[in-house]
């Protein structure tokens, strides 16, 4: 009897510990909604998300929605900022290391024609092929906030 109680106790503690992590939840495409624009998230090549240090999940259908949302957020409180890798649909990569491309050849859900690449090489290649401007995370946020 005592053993079972102890086991339940251990399991409960484990559960509490698990539910406290600030790891990003996977986006459920077709089911989740963009926190910023309320649209359903369906586009695996343009989705984005961030997680606060308390573990609260925010998901977005496009990178421009994420950037617009983050304008009013304290950067200290964020554990993860992720954007979809255009060259590998479905993969989410840290925004800080990604390269961003604004090009009219690649349309994004909210009309800014903005997409992200894991490798800067790919972004540059695409920008040469289709015309466009490559940004880093820092220059991108600056560009959007000045708009």
């Amino acid at each position: 009897m005592k053993k079972t109680i102890r086991l339940i106790g251990v399991l409960l503690i484990a559960l509490i510990l698990i539910s406290c992590t600030s790891e990003p939840e996977p986006i459920e495409f077709g089911k989740d909604y963009c926190h910023y624009c309320k649209m359903n998230i369906v586009d695996k090549t343009h989705a984005a998300q961030y997680v606060t240090s308390k573990g609260k999940q925010f998901k977005f259908d496009s990178i421009e929605c994420l950037v617009n949302e983050l304008k009013s957020k304290d950067k200290q409180e964020l554990a993860h900022i992720l954007v979809a890798n255009y060259s590998n649909p479905g993969e989410l990569i840290p925004a800080a290391n990604a390269s961003f491309l604004i090009s009219s050849a690649i349309k994004s859900p909210m009309g800014m024609n903005l997409s992200a690449f894991k490798e800067e090489k790919m972004a540059l290649e695409m920008s040469q092929k289709h015309d466009g401007v490559v940004y880093s995370w820092q220059t991108l946020t600056q560009f959007i906030s000045e708009k």
Partner: peptide
Amino acid sequence: VRINEASSGNGIHIW
């Protein structure tokens, strides 16, 4: 047939 959400396109799309 909507098997894979992200690989679906629109029915009538006017841009």
